[in-house]
Simulated scan of single mutants.
Amino acid sequence: MANSDSGSDDFCGNIDQINKIINLNIGKWKLKIINSISHDDIKQELLIQIHRQWEKYDRSKPLGNWLSTVVCNKLINLTRDNFYKFSKPCLSCPKFAGGSLCSLYGEISSECGLYRKWELEKKFHHDCALPVTIEDHQDEIHSMPFGDINFDEQIANLKDKLKEKLSLADYKIFVWLYLENITEEDIIKLLNYKNERQGRKQINNLKQSIVSLVKKIIIQNS
């Protein structure tokens, strides 16, 4: 096993082979389904995982085989976490008959309780994670009936729903951030935070909560 004192140097000394194995394995995977993560980010995730596992490498065995195992396991996890967890429940259902067919309902539809729940909770994330070609994306955008959408009405509706869900203080910060375009620095001053770092952290947490809440509202209304 690796010596803890020399582990880091040992890792750096093998970096060329590590990168070679990473590139080789990435090339074998259809990583377009993980379109929410860049290729460089995936490589970085793999390097971090290998470094974390480095002390477990048995020097009496080939390094390449061990690296391939670590890389493949991490790629499986990345693929599952970024795509398959949002897949339709039909794929694991014994009634699934392939394509858009269901042996119980005929066509896959919201008549099925599991599918209806997936539509409400996961379809949005599934569609975001599913890649399309540039041409298909352009066709999809051009085919959307944006002319029929009353954006002022939609924004007003969203504001009303957020006002119901957020506390008065949080809603005020939402208005400052997204409607009045006040900077985080100015908001920190307006709220008289004594600790600027803590104030920024609280605002960032609130921004994440607002984005998550807006997504849920949009999904429920679609």
Rank of each mutant, 00 (worst) to 15 (best):
Leu130Ile: 06
Glu180Leu: 07
Leu67Pro: 05
Asn14Lys: 13
Pro94Glu: 03
Tyr193Arg: 05
Pro94Gln: 06
Trp176Arg: 14
Arg116Cys: 06
Asn150Asp: 11
Ser38Asn: 04
Met144Tyr: 14
Lys215Leu: 00
Gly99Tyr: 15
Asn3Arg: 08
Tyr193Asn: 01
Gly98Thr: 00
Gln138Tyr: 05
Ile182Cys: 03
Asp170Val: 02
Ser209Leu: 14
Gly199Cys: 02
Ser36Met: 07
Lys20Arg: 08
Arg59Pro: 06
Asn195Glu: 08
Asn195Leu: 07
Lys95Phe: 13
Gly64Arg: 10
Asn195Tyr: 01
Gly199Asn: 04
Ile217Gly: 05
Leu191Arg: 15
Asp160Met: 10
Trp118His: 02
Leu24Trp: 02
Leu206Ile: 01
Gly64Leu: 06
Asn19Lys: 12
Asn25Leu: 02
Ile18Ala: 04
Met1Phe: 11
Tyr171Pro: 03
Gln202Trp: 06
Ser6Ala: 07
Gln220Ile: 09
Asn204Tyr: 13
Cys12Val: 13
Lys88Pro: 05
Lys207Met: 06
Lys163Met: 07
Glu184Met: 15
Ile210Gln: 02
Gly199Val: 06
Ile76Ser: 03
Leu162Phe: 00
His51Pro: 04
Leu166Phe: 00
Asn73Tyr: 08
Glu184Gly: 11
Leu31Trp: 07
Lys216Trp: 03
His142Pro: 04
Asn73Gln: 15
Gln17Leu: 08
Val71Phe: 07
Leu91Glu: 09
Leu190His: 12
Lys117Gly: 01
Trp176Ser: 09
Glu180Met: 08
Lys32Cys: 05
Leu213Met: 11
Ser60Leu: 08
Asp41Trp: 03
Gly7Val: 12
Leu91Lys: 09
Asp127Tyr: 06
Ser4Trp: 12
Asn221Ile: 00
Phe146Thr: 02
Glu121Ser: 09
Lys28His: 07
Tyr57Ser: 04
Trp29Phe: 09
Gly199Pro: 05
Ser212Cys: 11
Cys112Trp: 05
Leu191Gln: 14
Gly99His: 12
Ile188Met: 10
Lys95Asp: 15
Lys56Ile: 01
Ala156Leu: 03
Lys172Asn: 09
Pro145His: 07
Tyr105Ile: 02
Asp58Thr: 11
Arg59Trp: 06
Ala129Phe: 05
Glu107Met: 14
Ile76Glu: 13
Phe86Asp: 13
Ile26Glu: 00
Phe174Ala: 03
Ala97Trp: 03
Leu206Thr: 04
Cys112Lys: 06
Arg52Asn: 15
Gly106Trp: 13
Ser100Val: 12
Glu121Phe: 15
Phe146Met: 05
Glu180His: 12
Leu191Met: 15
Asp139Gln: 02
Glu184Phe: 14
Leu31Asn: 01
Lys43Pro: 02
Leu166Glu: 04
His51Glu: 14
Phe151Cys: 01
Pro89Thr: 05
Leu120Tyr: 15
Ser60His: 04
Pro131Lys: 05
His137Lys: 14
Arg200Lys: 15
Met144Lys: 14
Lys159Phe: 09
Thr69Met: 12
Gln49Leu: 05
Lys194Trp: 05
Asn23Ala: 09
Tyr84Phe: 15
Gln49Asp: 13
Ser167Ile: 03
Ile48Pro: 03
Ile15Lys: 14
Ile217Asp: 00
Gln53Tyr: 11
Ser4Cys: 11
Ser8Arg: 10
Ile149Ser: 06
Arg52Pro: 08
Ile18Lys: 00
Phe96Gln: 04
Ile210Asp: 00
Asn157Cys: 09
Asn157Trp: 08
Ile50Leu: 04
Arg197Asn: 10
Ser38Lys: 00
His39Ser: 10
Glu55Val: 10
